[in-house]
Simulated scan of single mutants.
Amino acid sequence: MKKQPNKNTPHQPEFVFKKKNYIVMAIGIAVIAFGFILMAGGGSDDPNVFNPEIYNFRRIRLAPTIVLIGFGIEVYAILLNPDKKKKQ
């Protein structure tokens, strides 16, 4: 039987997520930020000169893949249930 809260005590709000969810979310944000950092650069100081470095592997394939992995980590963090007990 649940204990009834006293009417004189203020209601304590509960967070939607637990500590483990926030830790995984922070990891996901760090991975997304790392992907955007890898995407940066490759431009030219002179707008009349084309720099082909903007189309290298790191900016076209690797960085977007890392950003998508970070978004996947974020979805996992939202769906994670830290209260679920492991079966033994």
Rank of each mutant, 00 (worst) to 15 (best):
P5E: 08
P5A: 13
N6F: 14
T9Q: 13
T9A: 15
Q12F: 14
P13H: 15
F15I: 11
V16N: 01
F17W: 11
K18F: 07
K19G: 05
K20T: 09
N21Y: 04
I23A: 06
V24Y: 03
V24W: 03
M25R: 07
A26M: 10
A26R: 04
I27R: 04
I29N: 02
A30I: 14
I32M: 13
I32G: 02
I32T: 01
A33W: 13
F34R: 04
F36P: 00
F36V: 00
I37E: 02
I37W: 14
L38P: 02
L38Y: 11
G42Q: 03
D46C: 05
D46P: 02
P52R: 11
E53N: 12
I54H: 02
N56L: 06
F57D: 09
R59T: 01
L62A: 11
L62S: 01
A63L: 09
P64I: 03
P64E: 06
T65A: 09
I66F: 05
I69R: 00
G72S: 08
G72H: 04
G72F: 13
V75E: 03
Y76K: 06
A77H: 02
A77K: 03
I78L: 15
L80K: 06
L80D: 02
N81Q: 07
N81R: 10
N81G: 00
N81T: 07
P82M: 10
K84H: 09
K85P: 00
K85C: 07
K85G: 05
